[in-house]
Design a protein around this nucleic acid. Structure first.
Lengths: 256, 256
DNA sequence: ACCCGGCGTCCCGCTGACCGGTACGGTGAT
DNA sequence: ATCACCGTACCGGTCAGCGGGACGCCGGGT
């Protein structure tokens, strides 16, 4: 259940509906555009958006509304991603410094992976991912490894739902995908070869929870097909992920 | 005007009041604790918090409520800090790699600086700053340089308000502070010597807006008193900040 | 055993905050 | 001029939200 449409019969529901109408690419939306996207009556959007502005969740510009800095502050206090980020930064840092390729940290949320951090230099491979952004689990290395180290039920849940094809190389056959998940579970790494975006390859390793069979998060290294061979970095990602795993086990940051 | 108390006579006001009751250190709050902090009636908090949970802005654990991952996603879409972060990462990255000291990116919001990013390694100097966190402008290098490159009115506004003393070295004399701001404006860098936390020093340089007289953000390098000399890194921060300045001028991400 | 303080949950009748159809003024394209 | 589309403002009906209060649960002090 990715998007429960939120309860539109309550102020709060309308408010978050409006907030969620903003995507990563659309930074600023006009009132009319908000009306279009949310399906709410114009007068309502006008009023609620106004309230959101006075409550500092939205900014008003001459071009329209946009998500405010206050919302950024709030989001950065979100406990799980916050502690994760804090613990992980040094490891991600190391990885970047040794490879100079793009490094990701992500968690699973439903059928998607949500990127918590992304580190890249000036010449980084141009990937569609963004911190706070989402990608389908089945077409990314991080997603696969997260799925491999999930409860079998959710794994089945994902595998049995229709798999979106992002590129010609995206794996949509559940059988093949299932075999890759098994391999990922066995070796503690997953790969991706141009399955989410053309010209990109990835390796990913899991950050494990206490028991060692469930993943809290995953780390990946991404590079362009030419210079970058995922196999060459297996030990590196795995080491980083394991380091983070042992560090995380010493902290409380889980729960349902 | 740091904290307009939000309108408590509206659902939305109550909701954000509850959300803002969470601080960086208090990741999970019980119902009772929320009641205490917000001053709202217990029944109200119970209901609104419940609504926030169904709207995926809060998580419910057996220990209490906490800010959810959905809020993190939302916050990462906030336009200004988002584009800033995206553009700045490579520069921050470079700075870290060359110095292996803690690197910050921050913006000003009222009398505080809000940290947008923080990069540090395993052995980083332990500073009180956190991404999404706040510090008073007058006791940090970033804050000073941001203030120096602000409208004179806001500068006066800050200088004429009581300045909190964080450490014995915190500058609370408006006169001295004013002189430092003038120097920062002239040289394009500001310093801090154990003014926000014991044992830490900083250099910061401004990322300038189109006109070149107002700062959008600032970059800083932080290190421990022993091995770290701020003066040694002046050219480095300044170069990074200028690089980012020219990059930012080619993008639309300002406005009031 | 007993009580007591603090917790989370639930109930329920009153009321004013929210709703959204409707109308108005401005602006740019045709 | 005309039109389409925008943002803004009004306003009366009604129902969602309100919060005092009561309840059951737990743990710790006596």
């Amino acid at each position: 259940m990715p998007h429960e449409p939120a309860d539109l019969d309550t102020v709060l529901g309308k408010a978050v509906t409006i907030l969620r109408a903003f995507t990563v690419d659309d930074q600023v939306l006009s009132l009319a555009e908000l009306v279009r996207r949310t399906g709410l009556p114009k007068a309502t959007v006008h009023r609620v958006a106004g309230d959101l502005v006075t409550n500092r969740l939205l900014d008003r510009t001459n071009l329209g509304y946009r998500l405010s800095g206050g919302l950024f502050e709030l989001g950065m206090r979100a406990s799980v991603e916050r502690s994760l980020l804090e613990l992980a930064m040094p490891f991600l840092q190391d990885l970047y410094e040794r490879t100079h390729e793009t490094v990701h940290l992500g968690v699973r949320e439903g059928h998607d992976v949500v990127y918590v951090a992304k580190i890249g230099g000036h010449r980084q491979a141009k990937s569609p991912s963004r911190p706070g952004g989402r990608m389908p689990v089945h077409c990314t290395a991080i997603g696969k490894v997260l799925l491999a180290f999930s409860d079998p039920e959710v794994q089945q849940e994902v595998l049995s739902s229709p798999l979106e094809r992002r590129t010609p190389h995206t794996i949509v056959a559940p059988g093949l995908l299932e075999r890759q998940l098994a391999a990922a579970l066995e070796h503690g790494v997953a790969f991706e070869r141009e399955e989410s975006a053309a010209g990109l390859q990835c390796v990913a390793a899991p950050v494990l929870a206490e028991g060692g069979d469930r993943a809290l998060a995953a780390i990946s290294i991404t590079g362009p097909v030419g210079r970058f061979r995922p196999e060459a970095h297996v030990t590196l990602v795995r080491a980083a992920a394991q380091g983070l795993t042992s560090l995380a086990s010493r902290r409380r940051s889980l729960s349902s």
